[in-house]
Nucleic acid binder design. Structure first.
Length: 340
DNA sequence: TACCCGTGGTA
DNA sequence: TTACCAAGGGT
């Protein structure tokens, strides 16, 4: 059997029964693909079910507010995906009259849809012969051919797209693409590849040399910057708390947090006119892909005469917060408010 | 192009 | 405990 035949035969025998594999609606396939970007199936599945239930059609998604979409996305991370998803739903209504675009080229014009996602939808829903290249495909191909070109370079991306495009030729595009990813997810795994049960081990270059774990090669390492966040936890006599909406370009855009004071180092003492600090949390370490945040929560009470809230601060009860999109760091602190 | 964007699981 | 990384995309 050819490479592609091996992949497809193995896939049809070993594929998992996943919710988005039971549907043919390109809208739902799109939802699943965006939800699973840089996200494990175990982590994304419950979100997929929530989204399909709350927004059964692209019209429902487009009609929602961004805040509703972000709120449903809460906890999954990479929130630009949610904002772009909402934007793209409105694109589909306006530019495509509510009919999901049906080719790689047109799907690619949707916000938040790049080469991978456009290839996935076009192949799975419309049988277009375009190869997906995701983390799984990089791993499978780099090991199979023992390719030492780094995958995180322009040259590497171009090379692997070309290789996958050559391998897919003449095969069922949907089954080939999903088979490549499924093999990477279940057999050709990052740490302990199960080569004994791999349909390609006979002809795998790295298996022959037992160098599977040397691939794929990456050129860069991500560096994490340390940051010090101080959140002002201020409540009034009605047990409401001040919050602010994050704006601008950075992390957690359009999501809510306690009023923030960022400092270059850990803050030992906080003084602000009209506020008395009652309690301060130990630093909470919150690790992100490019930052490590050390957050202190300063629980304050108001000295009514001199206190002057900023104009962008809003008061919410704990109940009202249910409908506001919160970063995990903030969400995790809410139970402490109810206790004390 | 290099860098930014989250969260949680694993060894 | 650190390092890696999971169905990537935007700027």
């Amino acid at each position: 059997m050819s490479f592609g035949e091996e992949i497809i035969t193995w896939y049809n025998k070993n594929k998992r029964d996943l919710p988005w594999r039971r549907v043919s609606d390109p809208y739902k396939v799109w939802l699943s693909e965006v939800l699973l970007q840089q996200t494990r199936v175990d982590q994304g599945t419950s979100y997929y079910l929530k989204f399909v239930e709350n927004f059964p059609t692209v019209w429902d998604l487009a009609s929602a507010t961004e805040e509703q979409v972000l709120n449903l996305w809460q906890g999954l991370g990479y929130y630009s995906r949610a904002r772009n998803l909402h934007f793209a739903a409105q694109q589909i209504i306006k530019e495509f009259n509510g009919v999901f675009p049906n080719s790689y080229k047109t799907i690619l014009t949707l916000k938040g849809v790049g080469d991978y996602t456009a290839s996935a939808i076009a192949s799975i829903c419309f049988d277009e012969e375009v190869a997906v290249v995701d983390g799984n495909v990089y791993r499978v191909l780099s090991r199979y051919l023992a390719i030492d070109t780094p995958i995180d370079t322009t040259e590497g991306k171009k090379l692997f797209k070309k290789l996958a495009s050559d391998f897919i030729k003449g095969h069922n595009p949907s089954e080939f693409n999903q088979g490549m990813m499924e093999l990477g997810a279940l057999v050709c795994t990052p740490k302990k590849p199960n080569c004994e049960n791999c349909p390609l081990s006979n002809s795998c270059e790295s298996f022959a040399k037992q160098t599977m774990l040397d691939f794929p090669i990456k050129a860069k390492k991500t560096k994490q910057q340390r940051k010090f966040f101080n959140f002002l936890v201020i409540n009034n006599e009605k047990e409401e708390y001040y919050f602010e909406k994050r704006e601008g370009k950075g992390i957690w855009q359009n999501m809510y947090q306690f009023p923030l004071i960022e400092t270059p180092k850990e803050l030992g003492e906080l003084s602000r006119t009209g506020l008395t600090v009652n309690k301060v949390s130990l630093p909470v370490k919150h690790v992100l892909s490019h930052q490590i945040i050390f957050a202190k929560f300063w629980e304050c009470s108001i000295q009514t005469k001199e206190f002057n809230p900023e104009s962008n601060w809003e008061l919410f009860s704990v109940e009202q917060l249910e409908e506001k999109p919160l970063p995990r760091l903030i969400e995790n602190y809410i139970p402490k408010l109810v206790k004390s």
